[in-house]
């Protein structure tokens, strides 16, 4: 097991850490701001369907994406707004998908967090948990067939997904093929309302790594520096031939499963425990404590994030919605094999 230590002493490391920390913080902040806006739009009836927020998981999410490079594959889950932004997804892809713009990547055919650009390495998740793990394994198998080297695939899941067959099958397959895959599990203590005590019986999810024959890493998901450090090491290990890496992050989901859920089932003691800390607040305190930024600079960052979000929402609100009359109702790429919406009337 590799435990998170995240101790840097050399000044070059410190300077590097400061730059990465600041970059990460900006993405986390932007994610938090856009998600707060989404929640407001949802409450105002401007979003149809669910809204799923990543509050409390931004540090882990952004660290995963920042450890990746252009050309890598990333399969985010429902609480990965920060990671999506850091991986290169635009705010417009987010607002357009949530608000159903015809110009978004999903064109109203799927909504909210079910979005991506697979050709750019950003997988579009389906709702079935664990299902993206074998898919990412397949992208890496394909790269091996094609002789593409040095790329990594990262899959983000939660504690609930560890109970699925797809998790088991996918991780085992990746291990058998020694694929450069990093599986990041955000153990946020609840799968919807189900606590981990009803989800798994092992003492620590990272112990599963041994069973699958992959490397295991544990990290404090509330600590941005630790997340950056552990994810960087895990991704580097995968990239350099170390095979699959299982990263287990401990944290608490600070919102409901979706905005429809008040999360009244969360144990108050957990909220008060270190797990219940807000990674964004901790990161902000760290920035000020280290003198890596100033209060006024933070204020400007916040305003800049708000401006970007308002602009994306305003743009999206002006855009056309899906039109059932001009919609292409053929589900196949091979058009002549479509049954033409065959529906006897």
């Amino acid at each position: 097991m590799v435990q998170a230590t995240a101790v840097s002493t050399a000044s070059a490391d410190t300077s590097d850490l400061k730059a990465r920390f600041l970059t990460a913080f900006r993405w986390m902040l932007l994610a938090r701001v856009v998600e707060e806006k989404l929640a407001a739009l949802y409450r105002g009836g401007k979003i149809t369907g669910g809204v799923f927020l990543g509050k409390g998981q931004e540090a882990l999410s952004v660290a995963t994406a920042m450890a990746l490079r252009k050309g890598d594959v990333f399969a985010p889950l429902i609480r990965d707004q920060a990671g999506r932004l850091a991986f290169g997804e635009t705010l417009l892809d987010c607002t357009r998908t949530y608000m159903g713009s015809r110009l978004g990547p999903m064109r109203g055919r799927d909504g909210n967090v079910h979005r991506g650009r697979p050709k750019e390495g950003l997988m579009a998740m389906i709702s079935h948990l664990g299902a993206m793990l074998p898919v990412v394994a397949g992208t890496l198998l394909a790269r091996r067939f094609r002789g593409v080297e040095g790329t990594v695939g990262a899959v983000n899941l939660g504690d609930g997904a560890t109970s699925t067959g797809a998790f088991h099958e996918g991780l085992n397959l990746a291990a058998v093929e020694k694929l450069p895959l990093v599986l990041v599990v955000a153990n946020n203590q609840y799968a919807y309302s189900t606590p981990t005590s009803r989800q798994f019986a092992c003492e620590d999810l990272v112990d599963k790594a041994v069973g699958y024959g992959v490397a295991g890493h544990s990290v404090d998901g509330t600590n941005l520096e630790a997340c950056l450090d552990v994810l960087d090491r895990a991704v580097t290990a995968a990239r350099t031939g170390g095979g699959p890496q299982l990263v287990i992050a401990s944290l608490l989901r600070l919102v409901g499963h979706g905005e429809h859920d008040d999360a009244g089932y969360v144990d108050p003691a957990l909220r008060k425990s270190p797990l219940g800390a807000d990674c964004l607040e901790l990161a902000e305190q760290r920035l000020l404590h280290e003198n890596w930024t100033t209060s006024s600079a933070l204020h400007e960052m916040q305003q800049d994030a708000q401006r970007q979000v308002e602009e994306a929402v305003a743009t999206t609100l002006r855009e056309p919605l899906p039109d059932p009359d001009t919609e292409d109702w053929c589900p196949l790429a091979t058009r002549h094999l479509c049954e033409g919406g065959y529906s006897p009337t």
Binding site: A131, V135, N172
Partner: peptide
């Protein structure tokens, strides 16, 4: 692992 075979 039929799920993982198809998924991959």
């Amino acid at each position: 692992s039929e799920d993982a075979i198809i998924g991959s």
